[in-house]
Design a protein around this nucleic acid. Structure first.
Lengths: 207, 207
DNA sequence: ATAAATATACTTGTAAACCGGTATATTTTT
DNA sequence: AAAAATATACCGGTTTACAAGTATATTTAT
């Protein structure tokens, strides 16, 4: 019988898994029981077996970390999931939290930070590093406009080179309606032509 | 006196460094003598000391791996540099090679692949994983248009929302000239309006 | 149930972009 | 020195986009 905190690692990079295991081997209170490089294998395991904390990379080849997080959390609400990624994208962090992640780390975390994060989520708390917190704070300042479904649809058609008339034809709308959406899009991004709109939208990862 | 292959690791993620050290600890023929999380510290070390192979991450916080690679190679041409990164961007790989890198790995490499790469570059060969090779092959198929200096200038002004007249004013050109460049840009990207042009340019990392 | 957000559509006018040409001076490369 | 690439500039005409307003039906959230 094992009373240690059971940790599962999901990451498609073998060297990261090795690194995490090595860093965590210094802490007697926990043990890394299984590791997975494929998201779906981790999913299958987690449905059938118990563990305490899952360290989960966001960028998996077969399934997105966000999706996996949602599926796993739904099946086992007691599981504590710690998201990880190299790039610090606020919207991804938000999505992970929404899907049930209890904490988030950026991969340049130190061993101590990693340990603290695992300990906190195991105890039912949440953990977000200072860096993650400042990313979230910063991103909420530069208010990314909220686009409606229709607007997103039209935005991507504009980006692919369709004219107002062509878009209207595809969506069975009046060109005048499409033009209104186009105007609203430009207003939301505070630009006054389509090229700048596309640039902004891509910069803010909305395209 | 040590006859092993001396390997230096430069990566801003402690867990990746740990992972690499752990993976490489199984191979007696080499030894990881120093590791750095900051590019400039590695640079200072490499100017003053000798080593055989440098495993270098591309995404460093203080200096780009590409820049570092160029500086270090210029100072010590005998040094073998192996580039590494998580994302598989063909243009970055090409730039690294151009700046003197002898090989390139994607971070999901296995221990054996890593070892093979180090061995190869140490012996004066080059090493590019199958994955890297296919990325390079694929990217050379979808011919990215070559833009002139003027075209790049005008392209970025279009992306920032300037009209033909405004661009002409800024660059002290006739609006008719700017329009010609604009047209040539659209022709090169095979699109017929500016929004699609911007989308294409960003997709192909030219903006 | 009511308020707010979203999606729809119109008018009028102006400005800008796009198309298909042509032309030539200046660099850069071979 | 010749050829190729780049940068410059023009004409005439058509299409599309943009600006500033108004209006209303339909969803969605409170």
């Amino acid at each position: 019988m094992n009373s240690k905190i059971e940790v599962i690692i999901v990451d498609d990079h073998p060297m990261v898994i090795e690194g995490l295991k090595s860093l965590l081997s210094n802490y007697d209170i926990l043990s890394v029981t299984h590791t997975f490089t494929k998201g779906m294998e981790a999913y299958d395991y987690l449905l059938a077996n118990d563990c305490d904390v899952v360290l989960m990379d966001i960028n998996l080849p077969d399934i997105s970390g966000i999706e996996l997080c949602g599926k796993v959390s739904a099946a086992n609400t007691k599981l504590k999931i710690l998201g990880m990624s190299t790039h610090n994208d606020a919207s991804i962090i938000r999505q992970m939290v929404h899907k049930g992640a209890k904490g988030y780390l950026i991969k340049n975390a130190s061993a101590d930070e990693l340990y603290t994060a695992i300990e906190n989520v195991y105890e039912g708390k949440t953990y977000f590093s200072h860096e993650v917190q400042s990313i979230l704070a910063e991103s909420s300042l530069k208010n990314i406009p909220h686009l409606t479904r229709r607007e997103k649809e039209i935005l991507s058609l504009i980006a692919s080179g369709e004219t107002t008339h062509q878009i209207a034809g595809k969506l069975y709308l009046s060109p005048l309606t499409v033009e209104t959406h186009r105007r609203n899009l430009m207003q939301k991004f505070d630009v006054n032509n389509a090229p700048a709109l596309i640039k902004m939208a891509i910069d803010q990862k909305l395209l």
